[in-house]
């Protein structure tokens, strides 16, 4: 039964039926089925507060000259915010591993797309620059 290692849907779903085995420690919410994970209120508010704080931070930092580090700092902060949203607001933390895997997987493809494309554009850019320069000289004549 290799299916079980990929996901556990091959077993049919009624095994976990409507009675809901409480694995995620949400036993204090009676009547809530096992597939529904309830995010505690304090987490939601704490995440929100952190998001606002990080927004303030990134705005404040934008006034400071950080040179080339700037883009990495602002993208770093954005990524922390994105992770907070994904992990808590989007319940990734308690989601099926498959769904998390799918998301990470898509990011790999985005990286591949942007990475290879950027690599190639940077490689052939000198040709374009040289060409533009020659055209400029031609016009000047």
């Amino acid at each position: 039964m290799t299916a079980a290692t990929i996901d556990h849907t091959g077993h049919g779903h009624d095994a976990h039926g409507h009675d809901g085995h409480a694995h995620h420690g949400h036993g204090h919410y009676p009547g809530v089925p096992s597939y529904s994970h309830i995010m505690p209120l304090w987490i939601l508010f704490a995440v929100f507060a952190s998001l606002i704080a990080l927004t303030a931070l990134t705005v404040a930092l934008s006034g400071v000259a950080l040179g080339t580090a700037e883009i990495f700092v602002s993208m770093g902060i954005a990524t922390i915010k994105a992770l907070l949203v994904a992990v808590y607001f989007m319940h990734m933390r308690h989601d099926k591993p498959l769904n998390v895997l799918i998301c990470t997987f898509s990011l790999v493809f985005v990286a591949l797309f942007i990475g290879l494309l950027l690599f190639d554009s940077m490689e052939y850019y000198p040709n374009i620059a040289a060409r533009t320069y020659v055209e400029m000289l031609d016009k000047a004549k």
């Binding site: 039964m1 290799t2 299916a3 079980a4 990929i6 996901d7 849907t9 091959g10 077993h11 049919g12 498959l98």
Partner: peptide, 12 residues
């Protein structure tokens, strides 16, 4: 394919 396989229908 992920969620509708009946019992016994494993990936392989």
């Amino acid at each position: 394919i992920h969620t509708m396989r009946p019992p016994g229908m494993t990936w392989f």
